[in-house]
Write a protein that binds this DNA or RNA. Structure first.
Lengths: 186, 186
DNA sequence: GGCGGATGTTACGCACGCGAAAGTTCCAGA
DNA sequence: TCTGGAACTTTCGCGTGCGTAACATCCGCC
């Protein structure tokens, strides 16, 4: 199917086909990811909300009251980001802030009646297009995908963990060589 | 092997295992995506740049002068977003705006000497951790992944075109080429 | 030649999204 | 007890990211 390696490629351990494959995979993933986000945002907008606001509503609907930290963790965002989102949702009457009795440092985010009603009204969750597409996959392919993604995420976790400064591992030998004298910043 | 469907699941067309699988896939993808972005951002920061700035530098290094619209398309962002990025890069002396001779509506974005030097110094591209992880995959798995992602992105494109997922109706015009345009790089 | 739509860029307003620092509250240990 | 550090949230500043509107330029068509 694919042409044999040229001598140069063989010497350098490079493979143009491999690079093209990887670029294609990355491009497709970025497409899938950003398209899913775009659709979610569009759906949210039809209800007068933003994407992250829908995510928060659904989290609170599913789990009940959540501390701001818990909500942040479930939304994969930082506390400072979610503080702002909560601010706007309070402003719009979707949630309220309640001080925890157990630990007075904790602020619980709670749905208001209006927030609950809206959450019940909105059928979708984050990444709904993506989920729909996954649902249409053959079970076998879905299992394959799960397995491969597992491998990838383990590998990424390793790469990130190993090199404290996450610069030394994510590149080819050629790039590493070209960089040996390029340290420091203007 | 997964257990047989319970009567309820069969009746409703639901499958708890399937839903869990899909949730897991989505979770893993979000993890991979956001972790990759985080690392890219971290690398950029070590050179005094931001993630999108690095992306822009690398595009300009690879393609030469680009109109703002071309640069936006290659970065998968809107013109208004890239206008802001270009503003800050001009402010920092990385690029300059040049009016096109051929078409006076067009503004070309051009690397300055400082910008070129910096681009040459920075070894990574966007999603570098992800790319490294993909490189460590077996060739067979990489082919499987490519195939499955192709199916998914076709499906997503269909869903979006038709009128969307369960409930969404998202309009899009410039996304159809995201797939067909996956060829060719200098 | 000039008009009207198409194309290219910027301006503006808003909502994330993050890191660093500041302000509370809790808790373990001297 | 009290004191220092840890846990939790908010504030601040900056940089995306997008949609809409405004503005300039180009081009086909009369």
């Amino acid at each position: 199917m694919r042409p044999a390696l040229s001598p140069l490629e063989a010497l350098e351990g490079l493979d143009a086909t491999e690079k093209a494959d990887i670029d294609r995979i990355l491009e497709t993933l970025v497409y899938l990811y950003s398209e899913s986000r775009r659709v979610t945002k569009e759906v949210a907008r039809q209800h007068g909300l933003t994407g992250p606001q829908v995510t928060a509503l659904k989290m609170l609907e599913g789990f009940g009251d959540l501390s701001l930290s818990d909500l942040s963790a479930r939304m994969s965002a930082t506390n400072s980001t979610v503080t702002g989102i909560a601010d706007r949702m309070v402003r719009d009457g979707l949630v309220e802030r309640v001080r925890s009795e157990r630990d007075r440092r904790v602020i619980l985010i709670r749905l208001t009646d209006r927030g609950s009603a809206l959450a019940a009204q909105i059928p979708v969750e984050s990444m709904s297009v993506f989920a729909a597409a996954l649902r249409s996959l053959q079970a076998r392919d879905r299992r394959e995908l799960t397995r491969i993604l597992r491998v990838l995420s383990d590998r990424v976790a390793d790469l990130v963990a190993e090199g404290g400064p996450p610069e030394a591992e994510a590149r080819t030998e050629a790039q590493a060589n070209a960089e040996t004298e390029a340290e420091g910043k203007p």
